[in-house]
Amino acid sequence: MNIFRLLGDLSHLLAIIILLLKIWKTRSCAGISGKSQILFAIVYTTRYLDLVNTYISAYNTFMKIIFLSASYTTVYLMYMKFKATYDHNHDTFRIEFLVLPTFVLALLINHEPSVVEVLWTFSIYLESLAILPQLFLVSKTGEAESITSHYLFALGSYRGLYLLNWVYRYYAEDHYDLIAIVAGLVQTVLYCDFFYLYITKVLKGKKLQLPA
């Protein structure tokens, strides 16, 4: 565990907590894409299958359980408890356009043709694109609440920090995983436009508003 990896995980954890608190405190999930949240639930479920048969560390198990339960809780809050506040008119991204191609890609390009390995690879590919419905929603409405921007910033930073962690691990441990690295790069690049707006607008106290 290096500092980049730890900061990445904490950033990821912070993003999830921000989102849950926002929904809980405001009793509303307006501006949040339920489609992205469903994709994240699929990502964690298919990635953390090893939770039942592989023990890595207490930290690893703990974080996996937190990510899984927080993600299912978010989906529950959005589609059940606070359903009335869900922006379904704007959340129109077709998730099958992400799920099916990433699944086919995982079948074709993986480390090992086993069920668990293909599902892990699928989760990595899908995660890299899972934020697209959320970014699509923001671009459709043309704005995002500050709290939603903080959520997106923390969530985007997490994979960026993982990239630094992978550079570190390559040199320090001779460890690298090309599938994770390429997908992580794609994932981080998708946030670049948002990072720019976040730094130039939200951090200066302005609302994140896209040019008309």
């Binding site: 990896r5 995980d9 990821h12 990635r47 090893d50 592989t54 890595i56 560390s57 690893n60 974080m63 996996k64 990510f67 480390h111 090992e112 390995e117 892990w120 993982y162 962690n165 001779d174 460890h175 690298y176 995983d177 994770a180």
Partner: peptide, 10 residues
């Protein structure tokens, strides 16, 4: 590299 398949990351 033998630990490629040890998924110690999240």
């Amino acid at each position: 590299i033998d630990d490629v398949n040890l998924k110690d990351e999240l």
